[in-house]
């Protein structure tokens, strides 16, 4: 749907050049919910603006449905932009217009006739659950309601793409959930391609099918959400994942030499990760019996990442070296990712 090829954008500031986006190539499939995550200043907002050319890339190509946007003149570009709705962190509603008029804005601009506009706006007000607030002004709405109006405005003329620039970052967690549910709903009902820019892993985890991790203007890692979540390659990706759970709490505890991480000579501290398919078997007790190994759970956690449960356990294994080794191999053979975090003196 949207394809970026070697897109770069540099800003000239007083402090020198800022390479906001560096050689980014992305392919966002039709109907997908695609997340782009990064810390502030990573260049993700610039990247999403390169998709509708609010920022013109210095080099590279931007394709929308195979159409090279950089080759269009201003008028043609404005027509293509109408295929892409956009919502923002601070909603950017027109304070001087009512909710109704805000949503009608893109339609008035397209010279729809009045009856058709009224029908469409009422339909959208229904969709965002604000049917009785058409005459309110944005200043009379809560943040979540404003964002819903912004979504309705972005969707008014039936675009094919919805670009969300930190759309939930100014909202509380409960409201964030509501907005994400609405985005998921329109993604399915309108067959809309959605691009979500965020710094919150929880958002990506909740709705995205694919995710790209951005750092210093570059995409450092990308893939489908479950594989990125279960098998992160980059340090920054791991950090983001840690923000949504306390799975890496163990590393902190080891660093602090917390008593629960102090190992006996014949102990080993292990991290086990598994996906939905293999959660049903009573694998831990089986292994424990079979290989004569004691398994003491320290942390256990199940994440639901885009409908897929992902489990993670940190446990201390106690036993003879050979038995522990066999136990770990058994886990590996059952499709569980095994990572030895720390070993006791006998087992090193």
């Amino acid at each position: 749907m949207i394809r970026l090829e070697h897109v770069s954008k540099t800003f000239q500031t007083k402090a020198g050049k800022v390479h906001a986006v560096q050689d980014v190539s992305l392919d966002i499939p039709e109907g997908d919910i695609f997340g782009i995550i990064g810390f502030s200043g990573a260049g993700k907002s610039t990247l999403v603006r390169c998709m509708n050319l609010l920022e013109k890339p210095d080099t590279g190509a931007v394709y929308l449905e195979g159409q090279d946007l950089l080759k269009l003149n201003d008028k043609q570009l404005r027509r293509e932009r109408q295929k892409m709705g956009m919502i923002f962190q601070h909603f950017n509603l027109m304070e001087s217009r009512t909710v109704f008029d805000n949503i009608a804005m893109p339609l008035v601009h397209l010279h729809w006739d009045k009856a058709k506009i009224t029908a469409r706006v009422n339909e959208l007000l229904e969709l965002i659950d604000l049917a009785d607030r058409g005459d309110s002004y944005p200043s009379q709405l809560s943040g979540g309601q404003k964002q819903r109006v912004a979504i309705a405005r972005a969707l008014a003329n039936d675009p094919k793409v919805l670009l969300c620039d930190e759309a939930t970052s100014a909202l509380d967690p409960q409201t964030t959930q509501n907005i994400l549910a609405l985005i998921r709903k329109v993604n399915q009902s309108m067959h809309l391609t959605v691009v979500i820019i965020t710094h919150e892993m929880a958002v990506v985890k909740e709705v995205c099918n694919h995710v790209a991790v951005m750092e210093e203007g570059k995409i450092v890692e990308q893939g489908d959400i479950v594989s990125v979540f279960t098998n992160p390659q980059q340090e920054i990706t791991k950090n983001f994942i840690n923000t949504t759970n306390n799975a890496r709490k163990i590393d902190e505890l080891i660093e602090q030499d917390h008593p629960i991480t102090r190992l006996q000579a014949d102990q080993v501290l292990v991290r086990l990760q598994y996906k939905s398919a293999n959660t049903a078997d009573p694998i831990i007790s089986t292994v424990s019996r079979k290989f004569d190994v004691d398994i003491n759970l320290i942390f256990a956690n199940v994440e639901i990442v885009h409908d897929t449960p992902i489990g993670q356990i940190e446990a201390i294994f106690t036993g003879k070296e050979a038995d522990v080794q066999k136990a770990l191999d058994h886990f590996r053979n059952s499709g569980v990712r095994v990572e030895v975090i720390k070993r006791g003196s006998l087992l090193s």
């Binding site: 932009r81 109408q82 956009m86 601009h109 912004a150 405005r153």
Partner: peptide, 13 residues
Amino acid sequence: PGILEASQAMGLS
């Protein structure tokens, strides 16, 4: 400026 950006994104001339 965000409002201007939103109107540009909407395709307003």
